Structure formats: C-alpha cells, structure tokens
Amino acid sequence: MAMTASARSSSGILENLGGFFRKFFFRILSVGPIPTHVAFIMDGNRRYAKKQNLSLEAGYRAGTLSLISILKYCYELRIHYVSIYAFSIDNFRRRPHEVKLVMDLLQEKLQAILDDQTILHSYGIRVLFIGDLKLLNDSLRVLAEEVESATANNNNFVFNICISYTSTNEIVRAVYECCREKKVMENDPIDYNVSVEDLEKHMDMGICPEPDILIRTSGEARLSNFFLWQTTYCYLYSPAALWPEISLRHLVWAVLNFQRIHPYLENQKKKQMKKMKMEKEE
C-alpha cells in the first residue's frame, strides 16, 4: 500500500529530526578522541534469519542494510577507516548453496556500485578488498578490482572489505613476500634478519592504521582469525545484538568506552615503541 502524503511528510520530519539529534550528539562525542579505524565482525546474520523466521537470503540482506547504516554513522562521526570481516577463508567450508548466496549478494552489490558511482565519489569513499583474492571466482575478483580502480582517487573515507581473509593467511603471505624480497627463497642461505617493519610492509593491512575499536556482534568474544596482528592495543566490544540488529547506540557506546580507556592504550603503545627502539639500538 502506498504511503499517503501525510505519512510521507511525517516520516520525513522524523528522519530530519533524528539526523539533527544524531549530528548534535556526534558533536558532543567529538570533544573526546575519535577513533581513526573501526573494524567489525558481522556475526549473527543466520541466527537473525532463524530468530525472525526468515529465509537465509533475507537474513543476509537485513545485514546489508545494517552495514549501510553503520557506514553512514561512521562517516558522519569522521571515522576515516572502516573494515568489515565479510567472508573468512574458513567460511568456504560452509554448505555450497550458502557460499554461493553470499558471493552472489556481494557480486550484486559491487555491480550496483559500478553502475552508479555517484554516492562513492560525492562522499570520497575508497573501497579496498583485503584477503587472498585468488580464492574468489573470476567474475567476482574482476568486479572487486574494478571497484578498487574506480574509487582509487577517493580519500575521505576508506572502506576495507575483508573477503577470503584470515589473519594467519595474511601473515603467511607477508612472510613469503618478505623472504622473496630478501632473496632467501629456493637454495639461497636463510637470512633471519627480518624485522617487524619488514613484515608489516607486506601485510594486507599495511596500508591502514591499526584499528582502534573492533566490534563483534552476537555476544561472541572471539576474534575468529581476524586482525590477530593488528589488535594488540585495540578496544574490543561484543554487544549481544545480532548483526542485523546493530544500531547507532552500539557504535556510540563503543566510542564512549574507547574514549574512556584511550589514555591507557596510548600509554601502552608508547611504552612498547620505546622498548622496540631500545632493542633496535642495542
């Protein structure tokens, strides 16, 4: 049933009012330190579908709508980097029809981005794909490369999509590239003079700062092989809400808690950097 003019007017007023209060609250939040990078483990789409008696596809589509809202809030809060754990290498072990469903949905959304790039360019959003992309099918990999290329000159907001990704796979590939660069592969003598800086230069996430906050929905307090290297000084937050249920209040609560412990985290970082500098000079 179509909305009446009165209903549409009321909806518009409520949306504008919500936007006004959101911006006002974000201005208050910005008095404290704002995280540069927030990462999300989007857990709970399947459980949400079961809970709401929906199809699996409907559960994932509900999760996509939640992602769009969260990206909007992060942009308004001036968070510069957002990373999502979209699909783990381990997820390829799921039932074939579920893997196909996720891949088809991602391909649909990427094609929509390429067909209409207005929003991405007007907001200066750069999209990057993080992971072992050779594990993707050819059509999806080509689409991902095209989206990266199309948004390469945008720099207001960086959106990292971690797909066919695990942290251990990232580290192994970084070690391989580091060794290859130092020419210690094949029959060459092994050189163990590999620094942390050498390794991080070849990490997938070397292009971004380490996350300040990692949010995993559904109440699970596990990293599940996500950003193991990058989360030493990261605030971890695990709300009970399933991913399609995540809302503005969860993001705000995470930022408030990050601001509360920020001085401690920064102090720990400085101590570690000082220690590493001293070890390097010895």
Rank of each mutant, 00 (worst) to 15 (best):
V38G: 02
H202T: 04
K270S: 12
F159W: 05
R27I: 00
H250D: 13
K275T: 12
M103T: 08
Y237M: 09
P35R: 02
D204A: 08
E282T: 11
L256G: 03
E148C: 08
S238H: 13
N160P: 07
N16I: 08
K275F: 13
D138Y: 06
K109W: 02
K280A: 08
I34S: 00
Y264H: 09
S238Q: 11
E146H: 13
Q107Y: 04
L214G: 01
K201S: 12
M276P: 05
L133Y: 03
F258E: 03
I125N: 03
Q272S: 13
A49N: 02
E15D: 11
I215E: 00
L106R: 02
Y48E: 01
S238T: 13
K270I: 12
E197I: 05
P35I: 01
P33K: 08
K274Y: 10
K134V: 10
R222V: 06
A221N: 14
N257V: 03
Y165I: 09
T231K: 02
Y165E: 11
K100G: 13
L143K: 10
G206R: 07
Y60L: 08
Y165A: 03
D115R: 10
G63L: 02
Q111G: 10
L135D: 08
I119H: 07
P244V: 00
L71V: 07
V127D: 00
K277M: 10
I28A: 05
I215H: 00
R46P: 06
F258I: 02
L71H: 04
A112M: 08
A62P: 09
F21W: 14
L242N: 03
K23E: 12
I215T: 04
N155S: 15
R94I: 04
I68L: 11
L17R: 06
M3G: 11
M278S: 15
V142E: 15
L67P: 03
W243I: 06
A86G: 10
A39R: 01
Y165L: 09
S218G: 12
E108K: 15
E186Y: 07
D115L: 14
L242Y: 08
I246E: 03
G131N: 10
F129Q: 05
